[in-house]
Structure formats: C-alpha cells, structure tokens
Simulated scan of single mutants.
Amino acid sequence: MSYDLFFQGFIAGESAGSRRSEMLAVLAPHIAERRGAFLRIEIGDGAADIYLSDDGMMANHISGTDPWDLLVTGAKSANWVILPIDGPICVTGPSQREQRPEGLGEGIVVVTSGAELRAAIDIH
C-alpha cells in the first residue's frame, strides 16, 4: 500500500528534535535494504519503505500487517506522534495530546497497535 504516514515528536508545540536513534533501534533488526535515509524493512507478512531523517520519519508502501505493529512500537519508543495523510492525529502516549502544536488537528486517536492504527485511518 502506498499510504503515507509521517512521524514527529513535539514538546510544548514545537518539534522535539531528533529521536531518530530510538526509532532506528526498533527498525534495525528488520532492515533488508539501506541507502542513505532510505530503509526497506521486512517483517513477518509484510514490508515498508522508510525515510528516516534527523527530525522525523515517513513510511509508505506498507504491506501486510506486521510492519504496522513495528511502526507503532517505534513511534512509542521515539515518543513520536503519527500523522497520517487525511487521517486523525495518532498519539502513542498520554502526554502527546498536550505537546502537539496548537491547531494541529482536532481528531486525536490513541493507538497502541498496528491494528488500531489501521482502524484509525480506515485501512483493513
């Protein structure tokens, strides 16, 4: 699937800076290909393309269900909010609601699994 998901951390409404190493630690055992900021991860029944930068991440071409769980686990580890295109803001921890920038979406959903993330953005 070519759905784009963006990941970023916030503190007091501002970008939280890099938590790249926390996300990379979660993804590392599943990296099948790496070229600069691009990572291709493969896990269980699927795969995803990842673009990891110093201040966030984008994931797309996500197939199967297992990569979704990995992405949520990584977001929790990095304390990142998941920002789907045309979807609600997905938070992985209770403090993230208050840390987001003012005006960044009204709909907020707490996600603790890949299934919850897929349901939030209506992907089955």
Rank of each mutant, 00 (worst) to 15 (best):
L83W: 06
I31W: 03
G17L: 09
D86N: 13
S63F: 02
F7V: 07
V91L: 10
A48H: 02
I123C: 00
H61K: 14
N79Q: 11
T73I: 08
A32S: 13
I11W: 00
I43H: 02
H124T: 14
A37M: 11
A12V: 03
R97T: 15
D54L: 10
A119W: 06
C90G: 06
P29N: 07
L117D: 01
A25G: 08
R40H: 13
R34N: 09
V110M: 15
Q96R: 10
F6Y: 14
S18A: 11
G44I: 09
Y3C: 05
I82R: 03
D54M: 09
S95K: 12
G103A: 12
E106T: 15
S95H: 12
R35E: 15
R97Q: 14
G114K: 01
S18N: 09
G46A: 05
D54H: 10
G103W: 10
I123Q: 06
P94L: 11
E14Y: 01
A115H: 07
D49M: 11
I43Y: 02
A59G: 06
S15Y: 03
A32T: 15
F38C: 04
M23K: 00
S2P: 07
L83K: 08
R20L: 09
P88V: 12
T65F: 08
V111C: 03
S2D: 15
F7K: 02
Q8D: 09
E33Y: 05
A59D: 04
I62N: 01
I41Q: 02
Q96I: 11
S15V: 12
G103S: 08
G17I: 12
N60C: 11
R100I: 15
S2C: 05
G74Q: 04
I43E: 03
P88K: 07
D122F: 04
L27C: 01
A48W: 00
Q99V: 06
R118V: 10
I50K: 02
A32N: 12
E98T: 13
G56N: 03
H124Y: 05
R100E: 09
F10E: 06
E116A: 05
G44W: 04
D45H: 08
A16T: 08
G44E: 15
L83T: 13
R40M: 11
E106I: 13
T112I: 10
R100D: 07
N60I: 07
S15Q: 08
N60V: 09
H61F: 09
Q99A: 13
L70M: 07
Q99Y: 00
T112C: 08
V110D: 15
E98I: 06
A16C: 03
I82D: 02
G56Q: 02
W68K: 01
G114W: 01
E22M: 09
F38P: 00
S2A: 12
G103N: 10
A12I: 02
L39K: 04
E116Q: 12
V72Q: 03
I31E: 04
V109Q: 10
L70D: 01
E102W: 00
W68P: 01
P84C: 08
F10T: 09
D49I: 10
E14D: 09
V81Y: 00
G17D: 12
V72D: 03
E42R: 12
L24G: 00
H61N: 15
G17V: 12
W68R: 02
V110N: 11
D49W: 08
